[in-house]
Each structure stands twice: as C-alpha cells, then as structure tokens.
Design a protein around this nucleic acid. Structure first.
Lengths: 196, 196
DNA sequence: GAGAAACTAGATAGATCGCTCTAGCTGGTA
DNA sequence: TACCAGCTAGAGCGATCTATCTAGTTTCTC
C-alpha cells in the first residue's frame, strides 16, 4: 500500500511519474532511465526504494493507481443523486479527461494488465487484485441501491468492462464517441437492474 | 491487405507468428529476433518483405488480424438463428478460446492498440481502422435485424467495448466470469434495442 | 557533536533492442 | 549456359535496456 507516504519525496515522485508513464507507454514501453529523468530522481534512489527493480516498482504503482482510481470513481458516485446518474457521470468525466489529455490518460492499469497477463505473474496478480477491488466497490454501491447480490456483481463487471473497452476504442480513434455510447448502455443496464 | 498471399511462405509465417506474439506480449514486448526465431525465418527476409521495419510489419499484422477476426465473428453471427444468440455465442466462444489457450489468445490488436495510441501514429491509425471496420460490420448486422441506424451503431460500439473490456478482466484474473457477465449484458442490450 | 542509518548520485556492466550491411542461394527467362 | 531478380542468410553496428556497484551526502538519534 502507498499509505503514509509524504508527497513530494523522491519515492512519491518516482511512483507518480511511473504511473503517468505507464498510462501513456505501458510497462515494457517505459524505461527506468526515463522514469528517473522525468521524476528528477537519481538512478540510485530508484533501486534504494525498490530493491526488486522494475517489477517491484510496477506492483506498487499498480496498487497505488488502482486505489486512487477507485476513490476517484467512488467520489463521482457519491456526488451524484442516484446510481444511474453516477454511472453516467463516470463515463462523461472519463471522456472529458481523455479529451483534455490528448487521449493519453485513460485507465492507469489497463495497458499494463494486458501486457503482463502472460509474462509476469506478480504484476498480473496485482492487476487482478485491483480489478477485483473495483468490482467489489461497485457491487457494494449497486447492492446499497437495492439490487440483489448476484445481479449487482454481474452489473459491476459489465460497467467496468464497458468503461475499459470504451477506453481502448476512444484512445485508438482519438474520439469520445465510444465513451458516450458505452456510457448510455451502462446507464441503461443499471436502470434495467433497478426495475427488476 | 494480406490478400492473395500463399500460406506457408516465409512472409506468411512471419505475419502469423507476429500476430500470435503481439497477442501475448504486445508490440514493444515482441522482439524482431524472437519473431524470426519463432517463424523459422532468416533475419534478412524480414527486412526484405518489410523494408519499413517493425512498424510496417506491425501495420500489416494489425490489418490482417483485424480482417481475420472480423470474418471469424461474422461467421459465428451467421451460424446463429438470431442476433441475440449470435452475440451470446461470440462471448461464449471467446471464453472457450481463452480457457483453451491459457488466457493468452484474446483480441489480436487490443494490447497493441493501447500501447501505440500515444506513441506511433501509423500504428494507431491502423488499430482505429480495424475497430471502425468491426463497428461497421456489427452495425450492418443489427440494421439488418431491424434496428435503426443510430441505435445500431451505439449498440455495436457497446458490444465491442464489452468484449474488449471483458478480455482485459478475464486475462488479468485468469477466469471467464467477466466474459459471462459481459455476454449477458450484451445480449440484454441487443434484446432491448430490438424491442424499441 | 559523533555515529548510524537513510538516501542520493552516477558510472558501468552485460544483455538485448531495431536495423543495416554484404554475401550467397534459387528459379525463371533468353 | 548465362544472367538477373527475388529471396535467404546472418554477422555486426550503435543505441538502449535493466541492474549492480561504489562512493558521497543528508538526516536522525543519542
């Protein structure tokens, strides 16, 4: 966990920089030299804070980014008057961020998840844990709105899949049409579950 | 296009091998040395057939894999008695392939699409073209079933996003739960569009 | 203020990256 | 047979990759 870690420290700068680079260039596409350069950190510090090297850094970044993103999305949910609006706002917000960052900042771990799924067990497990935490977080919200357990979980998985899938299409096409369409479908799926 | 290309030739072997490696290891994660080794091809042949190097090879692999996958999915669609069953069968078939290949063979271009979206324009455009061809192919099927144009396109995007997103979750968790859930949601979305 | 621990700093090793280069081989045509 | 593309074959280049190593600096504790 990246708890009680003072912001602005070398370690925090390395983690934040790495998270950003992972979003844009992926795991294999991000070099350690580039990380320390962008983070204004000396190379030695990297291996001091992460003796396990790139893999240990990657695991920590995934957990950290995953936790931050969960909080961000739950915040959007809590600010909305109901869960249908909440889901809609998540997709709309994601579209806005994507446009503002020239289609770079989408999901912080999606690219890494696909890259490492067949090559690096510790990293794969980290991404699986993050996705599971997102699913559980969303399931809790849907259950609280009166949707039964099994439906709530299926719905959570589908909404997250819609978001992740739309990110791929949106980044490839450099357009937010996919996020708009997926957002509509996600909201409709939630409405249908509520009516059941 | 990879039309009229005899199978078994050096060029075809290179293309097929590269496509498989891209699925498992992504674009940056796949080395040219590994490609020629796996394809049983000499290094010189690679640059003879693809003077533009890795990028030209990548573009051709993306177009080729994209066209093959489109045909595969349309085949599943045509074999089904109706489009709701067709969509369901696509997700079920994908789950089966994933299980059979130890969660390696999902979408042939998704990983590459995310990797190159912010780093390589020609490759990014190739992935965007493939996704657009898939969207148009699905839209045509839905329109043929009586769904209006704009709804059909939104539905196509959503179904593809569900599939791509489920691939990420399934490969990360090494389980097909996400494909099952996304498949149910996709089928429900198609049913809803038909009832409109 | 002394000593230990934490951290910074960067040169460098060894492997691998994409790519270029020159030869040699093969099959079809004159 | 002579020739010429098309293709095969792989050595090797400069750059870059992750990781290790030693040394210097700062910060905290007693």
């Amino acid at each position: 966990m990246a708890a009680n870690l003072k912001p602005g420290t070398t370690k925090a700068r390395i983690l934040d920089t790495t998270a950003e680079l992972f979003m844009r260039y992926g795991y294999t596409g991000t070099g350690l030299k580039q990380i320390v350069a962008d983070a204004n950190a000396p190379f030695g510090s990297l291996y001091h804070h992460f003796p396990g090297g790139k893999q240990e850094l990657g695991v920590e970044v995934i957990h950290r980014s995953g936790a931050m993103y969960l909080e961000l999305v739950l915040g959007v949910f809590d600010a909305a008057p109901d869960i249908v609006t909440g889901v809609h706002d998540c997709f709309a917000g994601a579209a806005e961020v994507l446009r503002a960052t020239d289609y770079a900042d989408a999901c912080p771990i999606e690219t890494v998840a696909l890259e490492v799924a067949s090559t690096n067990e510790p990293l794969r497990e980290a991404t699986a844990e993050v996705f599971e935490s997102w699913i559980e977080g969303a399931t809790e919200k849907f259950r609280a709105a009166g949707i039964d357990d099994s439906t709530a979980r299926e719905l959570s998985i589908s909404v997250i899949a819609l978001l992740e899938g739309a990110f791929v299409l949106a980044r490839a096409s450099r357009a937010t049409e996919a996020l708009d369409a997926a957002g509509k479908t996600a909201a409709a799926a939630v409405e249908a579950a509520l009516r059941r």
